[in-house]
Design a protein around this nucleic acid. Structure first.
Lengths: 203, 203
DNA sequence: ACGGAACTTGAGGTATAGTTCAGGTTCTAC
DNA sequence: GTAGAACCTGAACTATACCTCAAGTTCCGT
């Protein structure tokens, strides 16, 4: 259950504390369903409080996101990380990590936004969680380069593009829900070190 | 210059005709600058008329788009097609066509929407132009398959995903303006027929 | 040069969503 | 049991953008 560690500024009145929990729970649900830009009205409705209460308790959407998303995100990102690290070699670990991130995006709009860094600037706790994930990916990328299994031109700086692109795919209602996976397979093939391929770029 | 062939229903009054042209010109500009979801108010402002006039003359945003975008889109798509057809072989023609489409998306938000099929359903003339382009791509894909230079699993059905993903890249202000090109290079490498690559998918 | 059809205007109504705050309610310490 | 702080509510205001229509303006044939 894990007590939600928001510093006990001045002990909240009991009803207020209860509302905070209700709002958090509702926020998690709604964010998961529609993404981080979900209307606060909907969260309030779901929590059985008025919007005013959300502003009273959290101050802003950013703060609500920052109070609610980092824990969830960290847990899921960590699960992906752990799974990926079971890969037998540098390539497989990187590939599984990227695949894990993309799969997370496909199954959870909130995480899709998080992973593509589509969240308000003020969410600093969330930014921290995100950085950790990116750092980890950067490490995997380095290791893959060192092992010579990753195309040389691909760097950690190209990661956001991959995740932003995938966010568009998983969020496109017109596409087959598995479309992202086919694209990712193509990208992963493109990412492997070039086994005697002539470089493109005729002009 | 090419007279804009909108059937002369009942000959428009001179001032009205002039406004139609102004609105069209403004719409082309604004769509190019911000995409097909541009506020009609902005187009009206730019044309020096009121929104009412746009509705009077075109009836809806869809109709305005359909009156203005297909010509422009057809011309640009055709240019890309022609350039691509100069490629020396099946692969090069396909690669250049895809690259051309993506480059169009990068330089023109309106076309980015068109190419990713992000326009209202009612724009039937535009849909026709789009279909032509997709048909052409499908042909290039077929030919590449026949020539054995394209990974077997990639079909014309995967095209929209590529273009939707690229739209996200060219529209992401946080990314390097050349990021889409690096991703595309990776994808193109992934698209080439597998020269003795072990297939992925360990699990 | 004028009458009426054609055209334009822009304010107003709709809808979505954010954000605030005066006033009413509820809790809790005493 | 009650005072008063803490809390909550929801209407009100802001902003964006769509779409409409009554009233006013412009054009053009005669």
């Amino acid at each position: 259950m894990m007590s939600s560690m928001t510093a006990p500024e001045h002990p909240l009145r009991r009803d207020a504390a209860r509302n905070v929990e209700r709002v958090k729970a509702a926020a998690i649900d709604v964010f998961r369903e529609v993404g981080l830009q979900a209307p606060l009205e909907e969260i309030a409705r779901r929590a059985g409080v008025s919007v005013g209460t959300i502003y009273n308790r959290f101050g802003s959407r950013e703060a609500l996101i920052d109070a609610v998303v980092p824990d969830v995100a960290a847990a899921k990102l960590d699960a992906v990380r752990r799974t990926a690290m079971e890969g037998p070699d540098e390539w497989e670990r990187l590939a599984r990590y990227l695949e894990g991130l993309c799969a997370l995006q496909a199954e959870d709009p909130a995480l899709s936004d998080v992973i593509a860094r589509a969240y308000p600037d003020g969410a600093t706790a969330l930014a921290r969680v995100c950085s950790a994930s990116i750092d980890h990916a950067a490490t995997l990328i380095d290791e893959a380069h060192t092992a010579g299994v990753l195309r040389a031109r691909f760097t950690a700086a190209d990661l956001p593009a991959l995740l932003i692109a995938n966010r568009a795919l998983v969020g496109a209602p017109q596409l087959d829900p598995e479309a992202w996976r086919r694209m990712l397979d193509i990208v992963l093939d493109g990412l492997r070190a070039d086994f005697g391929r002539r470089p493109r770029r005729g002009r």
